[in-house]
Design a protein around this nucleic acid. Structure first.
Lengths: 339, 339
DNA sequence: TTGAAAGCGCTAACAA
DNA sequence: TTGTTAGCGCTTTCAA
């Protein structure tokens, strides 16, 4: 199993030059006689030479690789990540950018304490130059661990205050304001919110933005019930809202999955959406289109955000950017049938 | 940006021993005095030492890393891979196995000629020890390229005859025969198939198996419409079948996502499933249970297959297994409500 | 059981 | 413009 290919030395011998010259040709350093360059190239194809990454990294302290990490605190990440096109959009945006920069992206999954340790190890050993981290839950300990380990990284979503790192994020409050404006423009006056735990900063911003815009529209009393980002928690929240506030005509949920749960519950109870109650979600994930009826929701420009995340990391690695720069993005209201 | 941590040398100095001894402790080689072991361990935590992967790989010719590659010949892989729970199961099965063997899996995406070259380069340079390749189309050139480059690899699905490599595969024809037998046992006689492009050998085997078993049951005329493995293509195929063959009472789709799309369409048109038309899928992915009604489907033991793929590769890397061993798996009919 | 020393294959100063 | 040389940090003989 010891694949031992030709080395620089071998190529040098064949080409009749020194190792250094071959290295220069391989790495495209100028100041090499075009004629010799040609000879060396021939020798390279002739020998079938491929650079050894380990040897290279040992001296450059670089791998040319960046990790894209999907991280969650408890459940199997794979089942979640590979069932929601949202993540496909993240991958697409990040990979496209990195490819253009000749940086090789590798994807990692961290869905247990053990897996997190392994990921931190992997990066600490220098197997990749930095990490783009997509945490599925706000309470995820991985970002903190990476900061502590001194790994260059950029996060998808604003980190907790104590974790100092670069990130990209959406103007969640603005998105929520759009949702409120849309509902009130459609004449809905008795609004409610299915929010999410305060531990997720994005969730709080969405709630606050919605309340703010409702107030501006003259709607003061807006009942709030908290869910946990899951469809099931959404349906439960909807049940409670319906029980305690029977006159509702509009609901905003802090993500699509909860909006989906709410719609399911309403449909089962014979409440028409949007006839009786209009529902607006957030994310524009696959759940939005699969919902019955398709969700009106607030869309994040995920691909752009992912590309920006990659750019921030690359700049940081090149020593151009700061280690903590961040970038904000604007959401977009997508009107479908639910509101 | 030159993260330069403590080295073996530093630890050795602190512990008052030689580099070699520290190396032995780090790598758990026996024949080290327990007392000294303790001292070294203390020195390691004290200095915050982490091994340098490049230096290590340079001498061992190993990275302890294996690549899981998703590969397709044309379209953006990410959008497809991250929308089909099937791939989540592959990832889950492979990762679980590799984690237990202390092998770090990294996932790569190869969806263009350029990306393929990069993946081959990545592996040729020794950034990972081998590859588990999941080709989305049969015409995919990547497996051939990797064989040529001498990269240890195992494929998901049987490769073309000219590509000599290890693989795992499902008896797709047998699964499709089960589907046909089930439908005809339930008294369905007017069957149709939502197939997939011939470029996917698994898809062709499923189609052939179904037609073969239908013929055996005395059902000769079976209309076939091709989808592209997505829910949306499934709903479109269903629409066409319904239009062109209004008397259908049973449909077999080459994967669950297309079956799901078909069910959605039927429901919308007020066609009862399975009352009017029975639907059978293939895969038993999470789409099967999320479908309304839950899908009767042919289950692939995907996790087992992926684990086997990982095992074959690891054995090959350890010099235990042959470079070309393969393993076949049997499908299982899972009867739910749709047929 | 431990240490000394020889590389692994490459890049990058520095000389020529 | 090219070659010489000194490491990068680690594992692994080989002696002691």
């Amino acid at each position: 199993m010891t694949r031992r290919g030709p080395t620089l030395e071998d190529v040098a011998r064949v080409a009749g030059v020194s190792r250094a010259t071959v290295s220069r040709v391989v790495n495209g350093v100028r100041n090499v006689d075009p004629h010799i360059q040609e000879t060396v190239r021939r020798a390279i194809t002739h020998t079938g030479y491929t650079p050894n990454q380990a040897a290279r990294s040992l001296v450059t302290r670089r791998t040319g690789t960046v990790a894209l990490v999907f991280s969650a605190d408890g459940d199997p990440v794979a089942a979640r990540v590979f069932a929601d096109p949202f993540f496909g959009r993240v991958v697409d945006g990040a990979l496209r950018f990195l490819h253009e920069r000749a940086v090789q992206p590798v994807m990692l999954v961290a869905d247990s304490a053990q897996a997190r340790t392994r990921v931190v190890d992997y990066l600490s050993r220098g197997a990749a130059d930095g990490a783009l981290v997509v945490p599925l839950d706000a309470a995820d300990p991985l970002p903190g661990m990476l900061v502590t380990a001194g790994i260059p990284m950029v996060l998808f979503g604003r980190p907790p205050a104590e974790v100092r790192t670069g990130f990209v994020d959406l103007d969640n409050a603005a998105g929520a304001r759009m949702a409120a404006a849309h509902l009130s423009a459609r004449g809905r006056r008795r609004l409610a919110v299915i929010a999410a735990p305060d531990s997720a900063p994005a969730a709080r911003e969405r709630l606050n933005g919605f309340l703010e815009a409702s107030a501006l529209a003259g709607i003061e009393e807006v009942p709030v019930v908290s869910g946990r980002f899951t469809a099931d928690s959404g349906r439960r929240a909807m049940a409670r809202l319906l029980r305690e506030h029977p006159g509702l005509d509009g609901v905003f949920a802090a993500n699509d999955l909860m909006a989906l749960g709410a719609c399911q519950y309403l449909r089962e109870r014979g409440v028409s959406v949007p006839g009786d109650i209009a529902v607006v979600g957030f994310d524009d994930s696959s759940a939005a289109t699969e919902c019955g009826p398709p969700l009106t929701t607030v869309r994040q420009p995920v691909e752009h955000m992912a590309a920006a995340m990659a750019r921030l990391l690359v700049e940081q690695l090149q020593g151009v950017g700061a280690t903590c720069s961040s970038e904000m993005f604007e959401p977009l209201l997508v009107v479908r049938e639910s509101a």
